[in-house]
Structure formats: structure tokens, C-alpha cells
Amino acid sequence: MIPFSRRAVLMGLGAAGLSAAVPGPAKAQNPFQRIDGRPWFFLSDAEARFFAAAGDTLIPGDEFPSATQAGVVDFIDLQLAGPYGQGATLYLKGPFPQGTSAQGWQMPYTPADLFRRGIALMGDSGTPLADLDAEGRNDAMTRLSEGETDIGPDIPATGLFDELWALVREGYFADPIYGGNRDYAGWEMVGFPGAHAYYLDFVEVNAPYPVQPRGIAHVPGTNRPAEFPGARRGG
């Protein structure tokens, strides 16, 4: 039997591929390696490929990692499996009449439901995002962000895009304990020093702050946090 591999799932992306799913050699200690064999907590393989393709369109790789290289798909998988995805802080009592944009979320779905339905409906009506080339993905994201993608009557396209873009950015910049921002990819890019925050002597200094990022579970003497918590918990 061929063991499950998240990496293999994401490598199955079409012609445009993803710089993406494969961590570079310099990242040999990448926690991704440790959860590669873990089945998704929430996502299907097709959903994982959607988030990888969307993530790397929104945050492509350059001299800094792409969204998937930074672990954003793993982050989204965990988020959708957890309290956020399951709507723990959403008031979801009906009825659900259509509102104005000023009235905010009026969909009868948890975030997890929203993406499950939304991705399926978008897949039904055209080529899955992951099977498009780079230009096609860009066009698809532009249409989605501008509300021009038809995802059925009860999912506004911009609502889905806003939620998607928020998740991708969270995955790129949240503390690495949540599975994204791998090896402090996002924090290194902008120069954010992280969770160990004490700046009393630097407030008035007009200069870059010369300290490497450190997360909540930072391992002293390394450039990484403690191992990915999902892996530590075991099955």
C-alpha cells in the first residue's frame, strides 16, 4: 500500500505545478516533513489542492516562500477542523434572509461548510482551480474577488473570497504553532520579531530591529518553533 502523503497530493497539481509543496533543501528540518504522512484533519484531497492553488496565487513564491511553502494548507486544514471552522463563535440561528453588505455574514453555514460547498460548486461549474495554469488561476481569483463567480444563490462570491484571503494571510503570518508561517516565513519577510516581545530600550531608535523572529513555542538556538503540535499529539 502506498502511504498517504500530503506532499504527493499537492504535487498532483496540474501543469503550473506549485513551487510550492516541496520545501527546499535549506529547510531540511521543516515540520512539514513530520506531518506529511498525516491524513488531512478536515480537507479532502481536492479541497487541499484548491487551497494550495488559491494560496499560491494570492501569495506566490519569490525570494520569500509561497503560501503553500509556508504551510498555509496545513494551517487551513487545522483551522477548518477546529472551533473557527465549526462556527463556534458564529450566531447561526435562522431564519437567514438576505442582508445588505453592511449587515455582514448572513450565510447559514459555518466556515467549514462554506468552503466545502463553495469549492464543490465552483468545481461543478468549470475546471477546478488546481487544474488551471497560472494565468487561469489569476483570472479565477480576480473574478472571485470581484464577485463575478457564480457559486449559487446563497454564497456570495465576495464572501467566499474574503474568507479565503483572510485564512491565507492568517496562515502566512500567524504563530507557527498553528501549522503555517513555517520557519517564520511570514515574519522574516516583514521583519516581525514575534511573541517574545520586550522593547523598552528600542522605542525611540530609528533603525531596523536586529532580532530574529521567535514564536510562542520557539526552540532556543534554532530558527524554528517546537515541532508541529498536531504531530506531537499523535493520531
Binding site: E170, D175, Y178, A195, H196, G215
Partner: peptide, 12 residues
Amino acid sequence: GPEEHDELKYAR
């Protein structure tokens, strides 16, 4: 800190 310094958990 550092646990409280968790932007995802508290700010998001």
C-alpha cells in the same frame, strides 16, 4: 507572554 502574544487566537 509569550502565550498571550498570539495574534490569531486573540486579535483574529
